[in-house]
């Protein structure tokens, strides 16, 4: 499946990665070759094979419904770029 400039731009936007046109052009080339390598998979017949999401056949363990965490806001917000009155700040969101 060939990769186009628009595909890279679209992926970059979905992934919220700012790319210059030059960078995008370079990624079209890189990603194109990676996908070409990946396309090898298409040659393999996988009809009827169940997808494998985890390497072990184990099931989800459930946690008891207990409050185990205490407030650590000040510790957690020490590594935050912008906070005010305990809130994380971002540029105004228009709804």
């Amino acid at each position: 499946m060939a990769l186009e400039h628009a595909d890279v731009q679209r992926a970059a936007h979905l992934a919220r990665l700012g790319l210059t046109d030059d960078e995008a052009a370079r990624y079209v080339d890189d990603l194109g070759r990676i996908l070409e390598m990946v396309d090898m998979l298409q040659a393999l017949d996988t009809e009827g094979v169940a997808p494998l999401a985890h390497p072990l056949d184990v099931t989800q363990r459930l946690r008891a419904d207990e409050v185990t965490e205490r407030d650590q806001r000040s510790r957690f917000q020490q590594c935050a770029p912008a906070v005010e009155n305990g809130l994380y700040l971002v540029p105004r969101v228009v709804e």
């Binding site: 912008a82 005010e84 009155n85 305990g86 809130l87 994380y88 700040l89």
Partner: peptide, 12 residues
């Protein structure tokens, strides 16, 4: 006013 002025605050 202050650094939150014109910003949106996030409460998680």
């Amino acid at each position: 006013s202050g650094k939150g002025h014109g910003m949106t605050g996030i409460d998680l």
